[in-house]
Write a protein that binds this DNA or RNA. Structure first.
Lengths: 208, 208
DNA sequence: CTTAAAAAATGAACTCGTTCAATCTTTTTC
DNA sequence: GAAAAAGATTGAACGAGTTCATTTTTTAAG
């Protein structure tokens, strides 16, 4: 019977990821013990380590799924954005932010970010960084789309502008995750306050 | 002899920090064992933990010293900046970047950033976040200064602009630390490529 | 079907950060 | 200056992530 192994492997990979995510959500990342994750997934600790390099990798795998979903939702907005820079940006970014806490707690985000910074050379951290790059590219594409439609002045460097917007929204999200008490609405309001005046600048300017 | 204790305490605090920094630089953060740091500082492991809450706190203490120095050097630039937005920004940011790798390796930075994200509620992480805020305020002050001197158009929101510039340079520094092979010059060039067109925008624009 | 080779699973042992009850040192009190 | 109180030091023990030699299961070969 060819493929028995492949099937079992896929099944175990999924079981481990599901068990881990459940326990991370229930008890937080640090409190969820590898031993418990292994038990819940019905594998031994050693086997778990055959499937994931370390505890952090499991979390980052969850985050990667989450970001993938956000990217898909974002693509729809970029395809047909509000024809106003500030509003288009706001719409896309709120999409990102609103989705962010659906599967993952702030603590899980913090841990995942910390891992991707601290061990950037593990395969899954690279995946995370890659997805971040795709998000950035998506913001750039939004600016480019708005430029094509005449909403953004032709002289604007869409790539530079998009990257800077993205790095800002990303950094602000990090700060948001660091403060448990901060509500999503405050994050959105702050980022909007930063972006709106700049958006206005490229919405209607003429270079002299 | 009043103050014997205080003197001994200060001495030990310093010895632990020096030993730790030496070992972090020599062998990397993870490989430097608490036991070795304690031995080098001529205290017991238990004593070390009376002085610092955990291993990460020792590193963050080093980073705090480093950022404090950068802030001082930055203040001199802000007091008398080049009278051109792109150049002023470039000067300040290169000051930040050039200083960054003098005491700390990329690996140490990554670890420090990861800690400050993951455990934002420890006193020293709060200190780190606070210093970050001061750096941000310094960039805002640069834009304000340029605005006062007529280099930046009066209609520009200096706070929003400065914050966005800072978050961008900060995020780019994170990415820089994640890629061991990237030289400082590449980081500078990339950030400059992002900032220059935006700087040009606020340097000479008229709102229509 | 048997057997050899390859792949996967296992869990006890190891490492290293962290804790804490017991001990020692300094300061204060009288 | 002796005794008591407060403060500081210590290192063995603990806990949790990770490793790896051994065992078990699956696949391939004859």
């Amino acid at each position: 019977m060819a493929g028995l192994r492949a099937k079992q492997k896929a099944d175990k990979t999924r079981r481990i990821l599901e068990s881990a995510t459940t326990l991370f959500r229930e008890q937080g990342y640090d409190s969820a013990r590898i031993e418990d994750i292994a038990e819940m997934a019905e594998v031994s600790v050693g086997t778990l380590y055959n499937y994931y390099q370390n505890k952090g990798d499991i979390l980052v795998a969850t985050v990667a799924m989450e970001v993938t979903e956000v990217l898909e939702a974002g693509a729809r907005i970029v395809a047909n954005p509000p024809l106003n820079v500030a509003e288009a940006l706001r719409t896309l970014i709120e999409q990102y932010y609103d989705h962010s806490l659906y599967y993952l707690s702030k603590e899980m985000w913090r841990t995942a970010m910390a891992i991707s910074i601290q061990q950037p050379d593990t395969p899954l951290s690279r995946r995370y960084t890659d997805l971040d790059g795709q998000l950035c590219a998506q913001v750039v594409r939004l600016i480019e789309t708005l430029q094509v439609r005449g909403v953004v002045h032709a002289s604007v460097d869409a790539k530079a502008m998009g990257e800077v917007f993205f790095n800002n929204l990303n950094m602000m999200f990090v700060e948001f995750c660091k403060v448990d008490a901060m509500p999503l609405e405050e994050l959105k309001a702050r980022v909007n306050a930063q972006h709106a005046p700049i958006a206005a600048l490229i919405n209607s300017i003429k270079i002299v």
